[in-house]
Amino acid sequence: MALDPSLVGRSFPPTRPYAVTEERLRTFAAASGATWEGGPAPATFPIVLAFEAMNAFLESEQVELRRIVHGEQRFTYERPVVPGDVLTTTLSVASLRQIGGNDIIGTRSEVHDETGALVCTAGATLVHRAEEQA
Protein backbone atom coordinates (compact mmCIF):
# COMPACT_ATOMS: atom_id res chain seq x y z
CA MET A 1 0.00 0.00 0.00
CA ALA A 2 1.54 3.29 -1.09
CA LEU A 3 1.75 6.21 1.30
CA ASP A 4 -0.31 9.32 0.80
CA PRO A 5 1.70 11.90 -1.22
CA SER A 6 0.11 14.73 0.79
CA LEU A 7 2.32 13.68 3.74
CA VAL A 8 5.18 15.72 2.29
CA GLY A 9 5.75 18.83 4.36
CA ARG A 10 3.73 17.54 7.28
CA SER A 11 5.11 17.84 10.83
CA PHE A 12 4.18 15.40 13.56
CA PRO A 13 3.70 16.32 17.23
CA PRO A 14 6.91 16.50 19.28
CA THR A 15 7.92 13.41 21.25
CA ARG A 16 7.62 13.50 25.03
CA PRO A 17 10.70 15.01 26.71
CA TYR A 18 13.62 12.57 26.93
CA ALA A 19 16.08 12.95 29.81
CA VAL A 20 19.65 12.12 28.79
CA THR A 21 21.32 10.39 31.72
CA GLU A 22 24.81 8.97 32.21
CA GLU A 23 23.26 5.53 32.56
CA ARG A 24 21.51 5.77 29.19
CA LEU A 25 24.71 6.87 27.46
CA ARG A 26 26.67 4.06 29.09
CA THR A 27 24.07 1.50 28.01
CA PHE A 28 23.94 2.84 24.44
CA ALA A 29 27.74 2.79 24.09
CA ALA A 30 27.98 -0.70 25.60
CA ALA A 31 25.43 -2.02 23.08
CA SER A 32 27.96 -1.50 20.28
CA GLY A 33 30.85 -2.74 22.40
CA ALA A 34 32.18 0.72 23.27
CA THR A 35 32.56 2.36 26.66
CA TRP A 36 31.28 5.78 27.64
CA GLU A 37 33.18 7.43 30.44
CA GLY A 38 31.84 10.96 30.46
CA GLY A 39 31.76 13.79 27.95
CA PRO A 40 29.46 14.12 24.93
CA ALA A 41 27.08 11.34 23.93
CA PRO A 42 28.19 8.88 21.22
CA ALA A 43 27.69 10.53 17.81
CA THR A 44 24.82 8.26 16.75
CA PHE A 45 22.99 8.43 20.11
CA PRO A 46 20.25 10.83 18.85
CA ILE A 47 18.90 7.89 16.81
CA VAL A 48 17.17 6.92 20.06
CA LEU A 49 15.21 10.17 19.85
CA ALA A 50 14.74 10.07 16.10
CA PHE A 51 13.56 6.49 16.36
CA GLU A 52 10.84 7.34 18.82
CA ALA A 53 9.62 10.04 16.46
CA MET A 54 9.83 7.64 13.48
CA ASN A 55 7.89 4.94 15.33
CA ALA A 56 5.10 7.38 16.14
CA PHE A 57 5.01 8.51 12.50
CA LEU A 58 4.92 4.94 11.13
CA GLU A 59 2.22 3.99 13.61
CA SER A 60 0.06 6.95 12.69
CA GLU A 61 0.38 6.04 9.01
CA GLN A 62 -0.25 2.35 9.79
CA VAL A 63 3.05 1.27 8.29
CA GLU A 64 4.42 -2.05 9.51
CA LEU A 65 7.89 -1.64 10.99
CA ARG A 66 9.00 -4.96 9.53
CA ARG A 67 8.50 -3.56 6.02
CA ILE A 68 10.87 -0.66 6.74
CA VAL A 69 14.56 -0.75 5.84
CA HIS A 70 16.84 2.14 6.72
CA GLY A 71 18.25 3.69 3.56
CA GLU A 72 20.29 6.63 4.76
CA GLN A 73 21.02 8.50 7.99
CA ARG A 74 22.74 11.77 8.76
CA PHE A 75 23.26 13.76 11.96
CA THR A 76 24.19 17.43 11.97
CA TYR A 77 25.08 18.86 15.35
CA GLU A 78 24.65 22.40 16.63
CA ARG A 79 26.23 21.30 19.90
CA PRO A 80 27.05 17.93 21.52
CA VAL A 81 24.38 16.04 23.47
CA VAL A 82 25.37 15.78 27.14
CA PRO A 83 23.93 14.19 30.30
CA GLY A 84 21.32 16.46 31.84
CA ASP A 85 19.82 17.42 28.49
CA VAL A 86 16.06 17.08 28.25
CA LEU A 87 15.27 16.71 24.57
CA THR A 88 12.19 16.63 22.38
CA THR A 89 12.09 15.59 18.74
CA THR A 90 9.85 16.83 15.97
CA LEU A 91 9.64 14.80 12.78
CA SER A 92 8.57 16.15 9.43
CA VAL A 93 8.27 14.38 6.10
CA ALA A 94 10.72 15.99 3.70
CA SER A 95 10.13 13.89 0.60
CA LEU A 96 8.25 10.90 -0.70
CA ARG A 97 8.79 9.01 -3.94
CA GLN A 98 8.11 5.57 -5.31
CA ILE A 99 10.64 3.25 -6.89
CA GLY A 100 9.59 -0.21 -8.03
CA GLY A 101 6.55 -0.22 -5.78
CA ASN A 102 8.60 0.77 -2.71
CA ASP A 103 8.01 4.07 -0.93
CA ILE A 104 11.18 6.07 -0.33
CA ILE A 105 10.42 8.34 2.62
CA GLY A 106 12.69 11.24 3.52
CA THR A 107 12.28 12.37 7.13
CA ARG A 108 13.84 15.19 9.09
CA SER A 109 13.85 15.03 12.89
CA GLU A 110 14.84 18.15 14.78
CA VAL A 111 16.06 17.62 18.34
CA HIS A 112 15.55 20.60 20.65
CA ASP A 113 16.61 21.18 24.25
CA GLU A 114 14.50 22.56 27.09
CA THR A 115 15.18 26.14 26.05
CA GLY A 116 13.90 25.38 22.56
CA ALA A 117 17.37 25.60 21.01
CA LEU A 118 18.16 23.21 18.16
CA VAL A 119 20.74 20.62 19.27
CA CYS A 120 20.85 18.20 16.37
CA THR A 121 19.08 17.45 13.11
CA ALA A 122 18.68 13.81 12.12
CA GLY A 123 17.84 13.16 8.49
CA ALA A 124 16.70 9.66 7.60
CA THR A 125 15.65 7.92 4.42
CA LEU A 126 13.30 5.02 5.06
CA VAL A 127 12.48 2.41 2.44
CA HIS A 128 8.99 0.99 2.80
CA ARG A 129 9.20 -2.36 1.02
CA ALA A 130 6.23 -3.36 -1.10
CA GLU A 131 4.23 -6.47 -0.31
CA GLU A 132 5.34 -9.47 -2.37
CA GLN A 133 3.02 -10.34 -5.22
CA ALA A 134 1.02 -13.46 -4.38
Binding site: P40, G71, Q73, R74, F75, T76, P80, T125
Partner: peptide
Protein backbone atom coordinates in the same frame (compact mmCIF):
# COMPACT_ATOMS: atom_id res chain seq x y z
CA UNK B 1 36.75 11.70 21.12
CA UNK B 2 36.83 14.95 19.16
CA UNK B 3 33.33 16.51 19.01
CA UNK B 4 31.44 15.24 15.98
CA UNK B 5 29.80 17.99 13.91
CA UNK B 6 28.34 15.76 11.20
CA UNK B 7 28.16 12.06 10.49
CA UNK B 8 26.22 10.29 7.79
CA UNK B 9 26.03 7.37 5.38
CA UNK B 10 23.79 5.32 3.15
CA UNK B 11 23.03 1.73 4.03
Amino acid sequence: DAPVLEIGCKF
